[in-house]
Simulated assay, not measured.
Amino acid sequence: MTLVPTFATPPGFLGLPLRDAGAIAIAGVPLDLGTTNRAGTRDGPAAIRRASRMLVDGSHPTTRVDPRALPLADVGDFTLALGDLQASLALIEQQAAQHEHLVALGGEHGISLPLLRALAKRVGGPLALVHFDAHLDTWPESFGQRFSHGQPFFHALEEGVVDPRRMIQIGIRSPVEPEIMDWTRSRGVTVLSALDVHDTSPAAVAAKVREVVGDAPAYLSFDIDALDPAFAPGTGTPEVGGLASWQMQAVLRRIGGLDFRGMDVVEVAPAYDVSEITALAAATVAWEYLCRAG
């Protein structure tokens, strides 16, 4: 690979050239039709790709994996239906089905539902889910709408594409109606609040993830607002009291070996970012995942 200054890294994720397919596909999903507060996540994929130039100077410091040596392809951005949320979700599912292992750069969190649908069909059954977020995203509706970035895991659980006994949510701390929390827990979902994470250690959190997921085929969904706004201000629904970026890294580095089949990192809204720190955090989530996958 030709060595260039960091600032001159090509615009694909980790400087990858755009091409149609790879064993692990990186795809942008620039959707923000279902956001309920600040819009702007349509610009997330481009910002994450640009920030990823900071991660091309060598291998991972602990796993010694250089993800650029993996069979990666940046396949560009998925096609969406302008102004039509339901049609966009259908298009996302169709395009995701074309890739065996997909790393999706969001976009709002609503993209997780079609990505999970496509992957569950591919593996032939429900998935385990490791979900980092400030919000449960298990509301049956938001402001009278059944599909937004607050519903993906309600539908995923109702449709059986996620096994609730194999689902763990990490970093939860937003205001929530008690019946929504009760419904989520009653299905068998494990919920770790941000305070739970702060009161224990990354090693303990990772051990709980391993206990819940077991050997099931798994999916990682990382909403960047799982991080405290001090570390990720560039998002549409920031919530104080979140995880620090080092906690995120420490947990992700301890869950290698799980049978992950895909992931997304979502809700980066660069118009509200400061010095690219949110976009860099999101790029680092994907990089840590790829280094673990290697």
Rank of each mutant, 00 (worst) to 15 (best):
L3C: 10
V4Q: 08
F7Q: 12
A8Q: 15
T9H: 06
P10G: 09
P17C: 09
A23C: 01
A27M: 10
G28F: 13
D32N: 12
L33G: 00
L33Q: 05
N37W: 15
R42W: 12
A46V: 02
I48E: 02
V56L: 07
D57V: 00
G58Y: 11
P61D: 09
T63I: 06
P67R: 06
R68F: 11
A73T: 13
V75C: 12
L85T: 02
A87T: 15
A87D: 15
A90I: 04
E93Q: 12
Q95W: 07
A96N: 01
A96Q: 08
A96D: 08
G106R: 14
I111D: 00
L119Q: 14
A120D: 05
V130M: 08
F132K: 09
D133Y: 02
A134I: 02
H135F: 00
L136T: 01
D137L: 08
G144N: 07
G144D: 08
Q145D: 14
S148T: 15
G150K: 13
L157Y: 00
E158M: 14
E159P: 07
V162N: 07
D163Q: 06
R166Q: 14
Q169N: 05
S174R: 14
S174I: 00
E177T: 09
W183K: 02
S186Y: 02
V189Y: 11
T190F: 05
V191D: 02
A194L: 14
A194D: 12
D196C: 05
T200C: 08
V205F: 02
R210W: 01
G214I: 15
A218L: 11
Y219R: 11
Y219I: 06
I224C: 01
L227A: 06
F231L: 03
G236H: 06
E239H: 02
M248F: 03
A250L: 06
L252H: 05
I255Q: 03
G257V: 11
F260Y: 05
M263D: 04
V265N: 03
E267M: 02
A271N: 07
S275M: 13
L280R: 14
G294F: 09
G294I: 13
